[in-house]
Design a protein around this nucleic acid. Sequence first.
DNA 1: AATTGACTAAATTTAATTTTTGGTCACTAA
DNA 2: TTAGTGACCAAAAATTAAATTTAGTCAATT
Lengths: 190, 190
Amino acid sequence: MSIDRKALILQAATLSFVQFGYKATTMDQVSRIANVGKGTIYTFFKTKEELFEEILDKASQELMSVMNRVAAEQTTFVHNLLNLLDSILEFRSDHELFVKLAQEVRDIGTAQALEGVKRMEAYALDFLRQQIEEAIGSGEVKPCDSSVAAFMILRMYLALTTEWNKSHEPLDKNRIKEHMILFISTGILL
Amino acid sequence: MSIDRKALILQAATLSFVQFGYKATTMDQVSRIANVGKGTIYTFFKTKEELFEEILDKASQELMSVMNRVAAEQTTFVHNLLNLLDSILEFRSDHELFVKLAQEVRDIGTAQALEGVKRMEAYALDFLRQQIEEAIGSGEVKPCDSSVAAFMILRMYLALTTEWNKSHEPLDKNRIKEHMILFISTGILL
DNA sequence: AATTGACTAAATTTAATTTTTGGTCACTAA
DNA sequence: TTAGTGACCAAAAATTAAATTTAGTCAATT
């Protein structure tokens, strides 16, 4: 059996999407990085979008797997949330794709990048909503609109990890965690 | 004494900036709305930017005055914050300019609009930071980085008032207040 | 002295042209 | 025979050129 060209292509494309975003990634470049002819890419993927989709699928699956692993631990809601935060902040590969795509949406508004961001956000929001729902059921969390609460938690996370950096020095992981706890777990008040 | 042409111009320009944003507001249009010759504008304002600055000053002053009025009430921190929220959500005139400029920054990235947004944000952030600082001093709020906490509160507010609307039905004022309380005052946990 | 609107230079938008890129397919090497 | 290739093409994007719009001026007019 010869080398797994599909894997090479996926690897090269992932690298390029993370580094340059959707639009600035050309099929020529991918073929060059992967050391295959351009035509070869099209024996595995119908279009550039399909290639992107498959990478997005993989990233989503990894995100899901992280989330499921965290959820399976069955500790408290806050603990789960912080574990999830840790996992995402530590293993940045998916996170980086997400950040790069978000930046591309902001800068040039590429439709496919927007789709990608929306998709990953949807997974995260759904997971959070579910966790909150359960925690409300078990009496751990106050009754509230779980969709809105999930949305706020995600926005807080994005505010601290990406928006803050636009006008300040980046916060380190622990500061981020501390401030998330401050609002979510006990409120800012004494 | 003849009519106050400067006031007419300021009024017309404000209307136009709120409605169309910085870039899409032309000096011709302002002069037409104000019923003055275009040259007249330049007897009061050196440039379009200066005209914009003066309107921004006015909006900032009004925001400051709302914030000071709220701060003077000397009730609890949460109460002050909610009063401020109410004031801003009810008297939307400044808020509308802010929202319009934020949209312009998002859509076409006008430099002057960005400056305007930054400036109004800076006032709000500074006020919040000060309030938090005081509340920490009086033992009402947990010791924390007041800049980061102020930033998070503002982002939450913006998330609920503008970002949520991109993918959902707008939340009404009371839902917004409720959810702000949920995170700030007592935390989401029971 | 205060106000104006036709006027101009500069900036923005639109149209035309060139370059780049996604996707194909006749061909090659294994 | 077949997996793999890269020159090739149409379509899209970037660049350049032409046309339009607009900020700001100033001689003329109240």
